[in-house]
Design a protein around this nucleic acid. Structure first.
Lengths: 208, 208
DNA sequence: AGCCGTATCAGCCAAAAGGTGGAGAGACCA
DNA sequence: TGGTCTCTCCACCTTTTGGCTGATACGGCT
């Protein structure tokens, strides 16, 4: 039996410690490294070449999880990345899958779920928590309401309270394009104003 | 040296596991029980009579952390409860302290911080994470930044995504008055736009 | 009685946001 | 090849919001 090497990426020491303890009980899984930020994750991945990277999306300052996934995938496409986060936000799921994530687990997942996800990932199988799966399922039924990756990215910045001008600067697009995206976002979220969009995004989409 | 018995309350298996692993490295601290909900916490506390309860505030369904703290304190006032949660929302901090919490730690706290908090708690000392302390300190220094009841009421409606006109109708005041209140709210929250105010209110003030 | 905080309202102006309609480029797929 | 999706951009216009400077009224505190 081949052992599966795993890299843990989470800015919470407690969570890394917990994952290490849980994964340590499995004979075929070995934690080869830990990282507390996106930057550290890239370094650690380079150094240890883990088969699987278990990564939180929200990491305080610096590079966020999505960006880290993109770069990890770019450097080594054979490395499987599993998202391990607290919230099942529609936008995050879309963006993570888009960035190349192989799985999407919630932090309240049972240990068996985590083990199964790690083992599945090395075989090219996607494993996700039930709530995540049901969200994706719902989106399949109403494809008109699914935000595109770009829209999700914009919405995420919108919830920071940025103006259209700032959004444009941040995303390197014109204010006109920002307005176009916003109009689409409003339609998909079923709201009419930026204020309602933010409220909906933070509450329903779990964006924070 | 007396050992300190601790009960862990968190709906995330990974977090409980991590806390157990970290606390297990300390000779004077023993984890005597775990619970995944407020209800379980009350049972476990009855059974194990721990000196300290480390508790998350957000726990899926059922009783929330604040309510659990109140009941724990009511049943055994000598038991110290330390909040161990992800967010440092003003509202949550106030409510937790009000419910009788002895400390307030964030999940990105260093292990040493957690140990110190547990040891401090049995001696009647309050320990809190730096961001939490700085929030409380800030409020003491700048009472000017506390919202008036009317402002809080308006802010609450604002987070529903209402326009100035709608706010006026809802509160039976003119749009001019709404704008005046908003200007004050923006100043107190330290923001410049309605969007940022909503984002701040929902995240920091815990309005939802 | 005078002061301060709170809540109410007005007018004016500049800036931002939203609505409408249109359009081109690139990717992807049938 | 043609259709569809996504992302990008523009112009024009209306509505909304925000900044500023005022004002009145009520209650509590000194």
């Amino acid at each position: 039996m081949t052992t599966i090497s795993v890299l843990l990426v989470d800015d919470h020491t407690v969570v890394r410690s917990g994952l290490k303890a849980l994964l340590g009980t499995q004979a075929d899984i070995v934690v080869v490294g830990e990282a507390a930020s996106g930057e550290e994750a890239l370094d650690a991945a380079q150094q240890h070449s883990p088969a699987v990277v278990l990564m939180d999306l929200a990491m305080g300052a610096g590079m966020d999880g999505i960006e880290a996934i993109k770069q990890l995938r770019q450097r080594n496409p054979r490395q499987a990345v599993i998202v391990f986060t607290t919230y099942d936000s529609d936008a995050d799921i879309v963006r993570a899958v888009d960035a190349g994530a192989m799985g999407y687990l919630l932090k309240d997942a049972a240990p068996e779920e985590i083990f199964a996800a790690v083992r599945g990932a090395v075989q090219g199988k996607s494993v996700m928590s039930a709530p995540v799966a049901s969200r994706l399922f719902q989106q399949l039924r109403n494809p008109d309401e699914v935000l595109t990756p770009r829209e999700a990215e914009l919405l995420s910045l919108l919830t920071q309270g940025l103006s259209n001008r700032d959004l444009g600067k941040r995303l390197f697009i014109s204010e006109a394009t920002v307005k176009t995206h916003l109009a689409h976002i409003y339609a998909k979220l079923g709201v009419e104003t930026r204020a309602a969009a933010i409220a909906t995004a933070i509450r329903r989409e779990g964006m924070r």
